[in-house]
Write a protein that binds this DNA or RNA. Structure first.
Lengths: 342, 342
DNA sequence: CTGAAAGCGCTTACAG
DNA sequence: CTGAAAGCGCTTACAG
């Protein structure tokens, strides 16, 4: 049994599709359609189990009520939680989310953007990989609203909502310093990524402000597709040295790194915080039940997701009107647990 | 600057849309279109930066190349990882995924199914909440292919792909028994959910097979929306008793429960596995860095996701032909770590 | 080999 | 108050 369409209802009632459309879209009073006919349309619609074809609506009206979300990896709890917040906010306004995991790969994200454009999404929320500047620039020239999250490109003028990464890393590093740690390391990802760079910059600045020279050997940069062995190598280089060359604390720039690193540290038989203090970005669940619960920099995921959707929906509502680009920087929350000692 | 359409190309070249459509869809040789014209169409398409409107294609052809995914919560790493596998497999065939988190709420899932139907998805992958039997039954009567994952309704004949929950729980419980544990508890979710029921059933059977009477006081059933306090209450009831009434081991039926429970156990100052042995469903990252790395029942997420998509795509490819419903049960992997002692 | 035409299911000026 | 008609951008019989 095929789905009922507008004309099925119209035919049945001997009225025009126009009428049916008006009634079903709540424009009955606007067009002063008689209560009688109005009621009959509704009745038949219910009887036929009518439900509008959004694809047809989309073709006609030009908006599909779906938005495209491109993040690094939906399996990463950080992005999963962010996705959830975005979904929730979107649902409140009847929008659907198509998600795409880019794996921080600009070729993939380019292809995903193209695909989503073909699908006529009404807007994008993107966590752009490195080397995707051109894609974003092209997007900025186009008509489809979008907002960047988690990172952005300082040189591109467009909506974005990020977190004060510099400040967060600075705070975390100072915390470590205040507890007497001096050989503080940082394990991070490709520094071409603005957020990662800011984190490492904040870390370095805190050291300098404490008159400690930055030792580049203590900054380990991992590839995006890092696996346990990459992390293990970094940990070995950091901790497998003589006492006065060894790191006595580590700042992890992502929780994915942190989890792998802690697993590695434990397997080496080292104790946190006694042998090594540890602090990490992202308040992931794993850190709560860790050998030594991890002191973290928590990000306001709810606020990021909600704000991103709000900005997007606002632009979708008012196409053409060039509102000021929204550049939002949110504060993080520093949560002290036991992994830094006391 | 508006997006170029088929007719823009046709107009420019003074040919018909038909022709352009044929060329761009790789049917040039099938319709023996001259190489010359073929080339010119391609050139103009590139020049105009043409890209097909999938929404229009969808309206015309009846398939949108998008599939709807309904799971409990994309922020839950279990579903996040599953979503990732599904996305990956879907992408290989040019399909997009719209995801919806139902929160195990049947009203929400009903609404999401309706929404996705209106969006003309080509198929569904659903992890159905309790009390959604009617929705699934209705779906089964309809034309849109779908496959259930993680749980299913034994009385409804439809595609599903699940894991041998009974066997997994049985194995885990036997493991605990073999290590001398006798007062083994189980913390689970609403047992109306088939997978949860199977887990608890497997647990009970293992006890019976070891001639141990099942003590219903040791089975704690939490609401779906459980929070720390709910888990804390269960833990207190299990461990806050006199020695011979106290549980000496717990099987967690989900990792979400497990993580909360372990956090709670730690905060009580109890040691795993000395004070209490612990084993859990789902090999989540958190368990690897846990106070005492947790022995788990790992699910074959990759295979679940991949198989589900395969079944779905196959049905989409062959509409109408009523293939046999696919009912797949996969094996789990029992991974022994330190949380049960030795 | 190529084109005119219909139609997917809707919305929305326009006309009366 | 109501309807005929156009059109969103495509695909696909059908005809020549």
């Amino acid at each position: 049994m095929k789905k009922a369409s507008l004309s099925d209802i119209a035919l049945r009632l001997g009225v025009s599709k126009t009428l049916v459309s008006f009634v079903l879209n709540g424009k009955a009073k606007e067009y002063r359609i008689s209560d009688d006919i109005c009621q009959r349309v509704m009745d038949v619609a219910k009887e036929l189990n009518y439900t509008p074809n959004r694809i047809a609506q989309g073709l006609r009206t030009g908006h599909t009520k779906t938005i495209g979300l491109i993040i690094a990896d939906i399996a990463n709890p950080f992005f999963g939680k962010l996705g959830r917040e975005i979904e929730q906010e979107a649902a409140r306004y009847g929008y659907n989310i198509i998600f795409c995991s880019s794996d921080e790969n600009p070729e993939k994200s380019a292809q995903q953007i193209a695909m989503l454009q073909q699908s006529q999404v009404d807007g994008f929320i993107i966590s752009p990989p490195i080397n995707s500047e051109d894609q974003i620039r092209t997007l900025a020239k186009g008509q489809i609203p979008f907002v960047l999250i988690d990172r952005f490109f300082p040189e591109i003028d467009c909506n974005h909502i990020v977190v004060d990464n510099f400040d967060a890393a600075y705070t975390a590093t100072k915390h470590l310093l205040s507890l007497g740690r001096r050989r503080i390391a940082n394990i991070t990802l490709n520094l071409d990524l603005a957020n990662m760079k800011d984190r490492t910059d904040g870390y370095k600045q805190a050291l300098r402000d404490a008159s400690i020279e930055v030792d580049e050997n203590l900054v380990k940069v991992l590839p995006f597709s890092h696996e346990n062995k990459d992390v293990a190598l970094a940990i070995n280089e950091l901790l497998g040295k003589k006492d006065d060359l060894k790191a006595d604390a580590i700042l992890f720039s992502t929780s994915k790194i942190g989890i792998m690193a802690i697993e590695c540290i434990s397997s080496l038989g080292l104790k946190i915080p006694d042998d090594i203090a540890v602090v990490s970005f992202d308040n992931t669940d794993a850190y709560k039940i860790c050998v030594s619960p991890v002191t973290v920099i928590g990000q306001p995921l709810k606020e990021i997701g909600k704000t991103a959707m709000q900005i997007l929906l606002n632009e979708i509502k008012h196409p053409g009107v060039k509102v000021k680009t929204q550049k939002v920087t949110l504060k993080t929350e520093f949560i002290v647990r036991k992994s830094c000692g006391s």
